[in-house]
């Protein structure tokens, strides 16, 4: 597998505007997209000092606290090194860890499957990325069904919604509902529940609990139309 990173065009999905779009962004999908991006960042890699400091700034600090992500509660959740060890322990290994991949966590053959890497879900994610003009970042080389990639894809769909025409709105929301139903919603909540049981820092426990609730809230909101 080769990485499809286009070095010259490394543009994150969170850019305020999409090229060629002159529409004013809708605030709600924009906010949802930002939250998906934030969560993608949490699971993408070990947190940096800048990231942790950013979380402590208002109005983020209060907004997080309102959602029971109270990082001040656990001093370890503010230590880059501690969180780095925890990230590796939870998501990287070596050693017992919780592989953060849909193919591994979702049994796809109706008979139980074997949780091998790069199953149909991974290939489906690649197709979704490609049809949206996206590619995996270098950090996730060969890991298209990584939880961070799927969250980032949802962020992308929200971004699209924020800029679409009124005619396209229903289609955008249907697409999001389908993605939640087919991918993110099928495994991430139960996967993150295992993360919560395993994590020793409030950082990963609380973000994961919030992420589960958010996905649930999203499913409800999108099904309500």
């Amino acid at each position: 597998m080769s990485d499809n990173v286009n070095e010259q065009n490394q543009q994150t999905v969170l850019d305020e505007t999409r090229p060629g779009s002159h529409m004013r962004s809708r605030p709600e999908p924009l906010a949802r997209g930002s939250l998906y991006s934030l969560l993608s960042e949490v699971y993408l890699h070990e947190p940096t000092r800048d990231f942790l400091d950013g979380l402590k700034k208002e109005p983020m600090l209060s907004a997080l606290k309102d959602l029971k992500v109270d990082l001040a509660q656990d001093s370890k959740s503010d230590e880059v090194e501690t969180l780095g060890f925890e990230y590796a322990h939870l998501f990287l290994g070596p050693g017992p860890h919780l592989p953060p991949f849909e193919s591994v966590n979702v049994m796809t053959d109706g008979k139980g499957g074997h949780g091998q890497m790069f199953g149909p879900a991974a290939r489906e994610m690649l197709h979704l990325f490609k049809s949206s003009g996206l590619a995996l970042g270098q950090e996730l080389k060969d890991q298209p069904d990584h939880v961070a990639a799927e969250l980032a894809y949802m962020a992308h769909l929200c971004q699209v919604e924020s800029e679409c025409s009124d005619d396209e709105l229903d289609g955008c929301r249907t697409q999001q509902a389908e993605f939640l139903a087919d991918h993110l919603g099928t495994w991430v909540p139960s996967y993150l529940a295992r993360v919560i049981r395993t994590a020793e820092t409030a950082f990963y426990r609380q973000f994961s609990a919030m992420c589960i609730e958010f996905i649930s809230s999203e499913q409800e909101a999108l099904s309500a139309g």
Binding site: V5, L38, E139, A148, A149
Partner: peptide, 16 residues
Amino acid sequence: LGAATSAAVVAGGALV
């Protein structure tokens, strides 16, 4: 929270 999340905090990089 989404509205409060600034792009500066989220470096992105999962997808490009």
